[in-house]
């Protein structure tokens, strides 16, 4: 008998005579006591309160303009695999280990938790190594609940999905919160939202 078989035998003997309970309805009908007005608003509120930044533009051209302007402060960049050429600023593209800025595409986001969904196919290093990370997000891909997001991810899972819900942080030193411990210390979600009316973004965002 293998270890596997012995484990299964012990599990089955432990469960013999015990009620096998029903699987409850999947979670998600009763969420926050005060739900946000829209998924994007909800995402923005939580992402910001976790220390992330959100910029909303109305179309890809607006995104490209914003990125071009924002990236002037950075010497180098690493792009996610799926970043379209039109969004790529004119910066030296370097290896992720040394890049000052990471630019990735989000697969989606979750309003309920304030999370960006990062697909491994876009490149994990670009998502993790640079101190500043800009993530382009399509407003239509913001799910209201985590449950909906997970159900939709299920059909097409890469080797890994990361939920990024704000900058890297830790309170392990004397219970004092610090940012940018391992992953990016600054994360900006650049939301392309056709419903956005005001497009005039301030110079950079600090």
């Amino acid at each position: 008998m293998s270890g596997r078989d012995r484990i299964f035998a012990r599990v089955r003997s432990a469960l013999a005579g015990r009620d096998r309970t029903e699987l409850p309805e999947s979670f998600g009908e009763w969420r926050l006591k005060s739900p946000p007005v829209s998924p994007v608003e909800g995402f923005q509120a939580l992402f910001e309160s976790a220390g992330g930044e959100v910029v909303r533009v109305s179309d890809r051209a607006g995104a490209a303009t914003w990125i071009a302007r924002f990236s002037t402060d950075f010497p180098s960049v690493i792009f996610g695999e799926h970043v379209p050429a039109e969004l790529k600023p004119d910066l030296p593209s370097v290896t992720p280990e040394v890049a000052a800025l990471g630019l990735s595409m989000a697969r989606g986001a979750v309003a309920e938790t304030g999370s960006l969904l990062m697909d491994a196919r876009d490149g994990r290093r670009a998502q993790l190594l640079a101190p500043t990370h800009v993530v382009v997000l399509d407003a239509a891909a913001v799910y209201a609940s985590l449950r909906e997001a997970l159900i939709s991810l299920k059909d097409d899972l890469p080797s890994a999905i990361g939920f990024h819900s704000g900058p890297s942080k830790s309170a392990d030193i004397g219970q004092i919160m610090v940012r940018g411990v391992h992953g990016p210390g600054r994360v900006i979600a650049l939301v392309i939202d056709e419903s956005v009316i005001v497009q005039d973004h301030k110079e950079g965002i600090s």
Binding site: L46, A50, E81, E112, T113, G114, S115, A120, R121, G123, R124, R125, L146, L153, L157, P158, S159, A160, I161, G162, F163, H164, S165, G166, P167, S168, K169, G183
Partner: peptide, 21 residues
């Protein structure tokens, strides 16, 4: 927190369409 700052959902090793992992 509403959720851990980072959550990893790991299915397996890097696939052919992926550049790293």
């Amino acid at each position: 927190q509403p959720i851990g700052n980072f959550v990893s959902l790991i299915q397996g090793p890097k696939t052919n369409e992926e550049v790293d992992g």
